[in-house]
Design a protein around this nucleic acid. Structure first.
Lengths: 235, 235
DNA sequence: GGCTCACATTCACTCAGGTTAATGTGATGA
DNA sequence: TCATCACATTAACCTGAGTGAATGTGAGCC
């Protein structure tokens, strides 16, 4: 399964056989985590990083009053660090996940020795920032309906890029509560929005599974451009 | 002036004399840019990256309808890439700036040769992502007054960390229009918010200069925690 | 079957912040 | 001295989305 991580990193630039093997070797400490559990938090793992090998996870911030803002979803192949210095941030599973835990020190050693691995890790981090910028724009400037549609487009596109078969319809383990936390809307409003999107035959999201009749139409509606998820030719 | 960049990178981990020199050498192509100009866009520079050596700049996305979302400010020492594949994103100056243009290929060569430089660049990128996450939370979850206050706290803290003297009051070349574009509020509402903040003796922002009577009180009001701007001990 | 739990749905009401538009203000410059 | 420009300010009105609360729906379990 660690090959998921290798495949992701290879998208950001060619790696040698040795380099691929090094990545596989460092990703051997895996663990299966149930749905809706916290990972990388308040335990010995805070000094580690992790890679999602299967399933869907998300990163979020919790406020003292219990409010929550999801700041990103993680699909198979995604790398994520523990942020020991920001205890208000959490990483949690949405579905059952297979996680590889990487030791930060081991990783640092590898990055010193294999510059192409560190370059690719750098690129994953820049790609993550590009996604965050789009989230900012999405939450900041788009009305509720397009906001939700956009998020769905992004999730499907990213899942598709991680070899999860999406085409037309698939399981999407995201509740309305979680959609609300990700889009900065209320659950009630998410419900209104989803039923409108359903009425307009754009998406149907029910019982943790999603059906998209016409992805092109949905993307057009949401003004979704996937260039930011594509990889820059250089850089 | 290239020392600004070196100093910033050194914050993310010790560098040798040679490494520092390499960074200075690659940052020699500098240019002075007037306030409110676009940089790194639609010209030969799109294949380059740049570093802000002095002044204040911002990155933003423009919509077809002219709406704009600022997705980040750049203070002296900040590194930024051109995104040739995302032409809707721009980089612009707010004040007069001194910019160093770096060649992407030269940079790639350096990263291959000096793993510690690439590690530090990676860390700057992770730091940028941390800032973006906070923006997301700020725009997503905080009411207008705290949102603006928070942004001001962030800007001041980052300027302070770039050796710009802020203490108590300083020039802040940000108009109400730009504040609105950064916080996803209307200019009219920004004006209401600013006068309320002024009435509550939290901040005074007038004529491109800012006065903070009691930074501690402002931070408390905005629930601003600067941990995310501090550097993690490891990683 | 009936109980519980976790979500989803719908309704009535409220409000933060948007919109439009008029007016003010100060810097620049012919 | 007056014109212009770029912002800032204020007011009146509107609306998208939030809130609270009641009700529905299915899955899992005893």
């Amino acid at each position: 399964m660690a090959v998921r991580f290798v495949r992701k990193l290879e998208k950001y630039g060619r790696l040698s056989k040795t380099e691929c093997q090094v990545i596989v070797d460092v990703s051997q400490n895996t663990r299966k985590i149930a749905a809706r559990k916290s990972i990388l938090h308040e335990d010995e793992n805070s000094q580690k990083s992790c890679v999602i090998l299967s399933g869907l996870a998300c990163r979020y911030k919790i406020f003292e009053d219990g409010a929550r803002q999801i700041v990103g979803f993680l699909v198979p192949g995604d790398f994520c660090e523990g942020y020991a210095h920001q205890p208000e941030y959490h990483l949690g599973t949405l579905s059952q996940c297979l996680i590889a835990y990487l030791d930060n020190d081991a990783l640092a050693g590898i990055m010193d020795e294999y510059p192409r691995i560190s370059r690719n890790l750098w690129r994953t981090s820049k790609a993550e920032a590009a996604v965050l910028r789009e989230w900012l724009v999405n939450i900041g400037r788009r009305p509720a309906d397009k906001r939700v549609a956009y998020l769905i487009c992004e999730l499907c596109t990213r899942l598709d890029g991680s070899d999860v078969d999406v085409a037309g319809g698939c399981a999407l383990p995201v509740s309305q509560i979680e959609l609300a936390d990700a889009t900065a809307l209320s659950t009630v409003h998410i419900n209104r929005v989803l039923s409108r999107l359903r009425d307009n035959k754009l998406v149907t999201l029910q019982r943790r599974s999603i059906t998209i009749k016409d992805l092109g139409r949905l993307k057009a509606y949401a003004q979704f451009q996937d260039a930011y998820l594509q990889l820059p030719k250089s850089a």
